[in-house]
Amino acid sequence: MADVPIRASRSASRQRRRPLPYPLRRLLQALPLVVTIAVLNFFWLRLAPGDLADVMAGEAGAATPEYLAALRHQFGTDQPLALQFLAYLDRMVRLDLGWSFRYNESVLRLILERLPATALLMVGALVIALLFGCVAGTVAAVSRRRSVDIAISILATLGFATPLFWLGLMLMVLFSAHLHWLPAGGITTPGLAATGWSRVGDIAAHMALPVFCLAAYYLAIYARLMRASVLEVAGLDFVRTARAKGLSRAATIRAHVVPNALLPIVTMTALQFGTLFSGSVAIETVFSWPGLGQLALDAVASRDLNLLLGILLFSSVLVLIVNLAMDLAYGWFDPRIEEQR
């Protein structure tokens, strides 16, 4: 009877040591990574020659030592690097991304102003790439070694090998300069005071070329990956068992093959999100899309380090959040993963 209280205490201690929920654990694990990214970005950008004072003094035509010293004192870049780093960490703790002296505006406000345009471009391209890529890969796998499979494989190879900026320029020449079907750049027509559905249609027309151009590369990747994944899953035992029980081929593919084949697609989407963001920089430059990519290029050209640091940190946190969301989505596609957490 003496061991009963001991067992009770052990069970109580085990209950107290119950692990935190999986999403909370992942967030806590991501915090050191965010701090590391912020620190590395700060010191790496300081290795680049020149600063905002050099750019502004050159534009003003008054690059005298006194003027440069006054600008650096105003921007705080004349202080020792250690003091600048401590000030940067203090801003990070207060969730303050700093001030853009180039635009004379808060960095956070600038990012939030440009974020909807970039999100519109990236989400549209990602949805198109995932939808048509998965469908094309499934069709290619089902019609293996036939003309449809060969045609999809050739198109996927071309989409994978074509540079985004070249494709954007060719689409602009064909559909804007030659056929005059779609606008060449921007997000809205200048001087057009449209509202309601007219404004939606105008934005959609401007989105067509950059979204298709950005989606083409990732559509090719998802098509090839989905084809390989469907072929691999189709040869597993549970698929043959489903067919042996009398389930039709189409029903087997829809209910058993495709859901299990989507797991590599989810993984690739999480890994490709950062690449998708970097690809949007080139697309925004070609099509004059007013998003974060264009803002980042302007920050690099003007040596606006506060703005560039804010964009890099914001995009890094965004990529981490997307990876966490994709990680949580695994449990929806495969309940066995949720049980192991």
Rank of each mutant, 00 (worst) to 15 (best):
L219R: 00
A242W: 04
F238S: 08
Y222V: 11
R240I: 13
V230R: 08
T241S: 09
L236A: 08
A244Q: 04
Y217P: 01
M226L: 09
D237M: 11
V239Q: 06
A220N: 01
V233P: 10
G235D: 04
R224L: 11
R227I: 13
R227Y: 12
A234H: 07
V230K: 08
M226C: 05
Y222H: 07
A223G: 03
A223K: 04
R243E: 06
L236P: 02
Y222G: 07
A234L: 09
S229T: 01
D237V: 12
G235W: 01
A242I: 04
V239S: 07
D237E: 15
S229P: 05
L225R: 05
A244N: 03
Y217T: 09
A242M: 10
L231W: 11
A228Q: 13
Y217E: 03
Y218H: 12
L247D: 00
I221C: 08
V239T: 02
K245G: 14
R249F: 03
G246K: 06
S229H: 01
A234E: 13
E232A: 15
V239E: 08
D237A: 14
S248R: 01
R249W: 05
L231N: 07
T241A: 09
A234D: 14
Y218K: 04
G246I: 02
L247I: 15
R243S: 08
S229F: 01
R227Q: 15
Y217C: 00
A242F: 04
A220Y: 02
M226R: 12
R224T: 15
G246F: 07
L225V: 13
A223I: 10
S229G: 05
V230Q: 11
G246H: 06
R224M: 11
Y218V: 12
R224G: 13
K245C: 13
G246M: 07
R240G: 12
V239W: 08
A228F: 05
E232K: 12
A242Q: 07
K245R: 15
R227N: 11
Y217V: 08
L247Y: 07
A220M: 01
L219E: 01
E232R: 13
M226N: 06
E232Q: 14
S248T: 15
R224C: 13
T241F: 07
R249V: 07
K245F: 14
I221A: 09
A242S: 14
R243M: 03
A220K: 01
A223Q: 03
R224S: 14
V233M: 10
L225N: 06
G246A: 06
A244C: 00
Y217R: 09
V239R: 10
L247F: 13
E232I: 13
V239H: 06
L219Y: 02
L236V: 12
A244I: 00
K245T: 14
V230S: 11
E232M: 10
R240N: 13
R243F: 00
Y217M: 03
R227A: 10
A234N: 12
A242G: 09
R249C: 01
A220H: 00
A223D: 02
A220G: 04
L219A: 00
L225K: 04
A220W: 02
R240Y: 06
L247A: 11
K245P: 13
Y222K: 03
G246W: 05
G235P: 02
L236I: 09
A244P: 00
R249L: 06
A234W: 09
R240H: 14
L236H: 08
G246Q: 08
V230P: 12
Y222T: 10
A242V: 02
R224P: 15
R224A: 12
D237Q: 15
V233T: 14
A223N: 00
R240V: 14
Y217S: 02
G235F: 02
